[in-house]
Every structure is written in C-alpha cells, then in structure tokens.
Amino acid sequence: MSDFPQPQIGSDDPVDLVAFDDALPIVFGFLMRRCGHRDLAEELTSATFVSAVANRPGHSWAAPWLITIARNKLIDHWRREARAETATERLQKSRPQTTTMFVEERLEVAAVLGRLSADHQMILALRHIDDMTVPQCAEHVGRSVQATESLLRRAQETFRTEWNHRRTEAE
C-alpha cells in the first residue's frame, strides 16, 4: 500500500490525468478500504473503469473523477444490499471470515466494516472515511438528518462491538 494525493473535490486547480496502470490501485484501494471484501472491491473497480471508458474513452482520467464514480458504484451496491438483506443474512455476515487474512490494520478495519450491514457500512464510510457532515451523509443515504444521526450512532456501536470482538479473538 502507498499514499496517493488526496482528491481535491471542488478545487479549480487543473487536475493531473492518471493512466490505467496508475489509476487502478488508487480506485481499488479506495473501494477495498470501504467494503473490506476483495471480490466485491475488484468487481466495483471493474465497473468503475467500464463507466469511465463509456463516458471518456481516452486512456487517462482525473483521479477525483474516478473516485466519484467509484463512490457512486459503492453507494449503489450498499443500497441494493440494504434492500435485499434479511436478518439471517446479517447474522451470517457478522461471522468472522476465515477466508480473508488481513495483515495491516487498515485492511483489518476494512474487514470489520465489511461484516456490518450495508446501511452501517455506508454511513460509517461516508461520515468517518470520507469525512462528510451528517447532512451530507443524509443526502447520500436518502434519510432525514435526524434518522441519519440515529443510524450513525447504531453503526458506531456495532462497529465498536465488532472491533472489540475481533481484537479479543486475535488475542
């Protein structure tokens, strides 16, 4: 893993274009961090580039523009999941995944995030990773600000429980 320049959303400065080989790990890192599932992150990364080429068929793109596409793909995924998830599926999802062995803490955090319900993943990623305000989150989540605050509190509590559970297991 390596650091990459933070997207300056809303900046008027010219943005450097990034070719496929350099853009791929940026988009994949962004998605992996938020969903915690390698297969899903790969699938959404592919979907991001397919959309990018459909809109701008060149060989390079602005990284912030790609990240915006990736975020929209992820939000669409979470919304579909939130509609489809049943209580049973959530229970199964919350079990530790033995197939994925994350070494670095960043990916460990992502793995914990990936066990939560789609709604909880979405609100935590938007609020704490993307650093959006609650009203901004509410727009993406499609709920009132008050309902979003409530969702956020529940999501934080679930994340803490899952994180502590994982730490206990590790010890």
């Binding site: 650091d3 990459f4 992996m32 990364t45």
Partner: peptide
C-alpha cells in the same frame, strides 16, 4: 476504534491477471 476509520487514502495492488483482463 472509530478513529481507526479515518486517515489518508492509500492505493492497493490489484490482482495482475484480473488487471490484464480488465485492460
């Protein structure tokens, strides 16, 4: 534990075979 969610973005290596297929 919540604070662990924040921090700078990082790139992550994509599987080479999958990258070739996508390209």
């Amino acid at each position: 534990s919540i604070a662990k969610l924040s921090g700078p973005e990082q790139s992550l290596e994509f599987d080479k075979a999958a990258a070739d297929q996508l390209r």
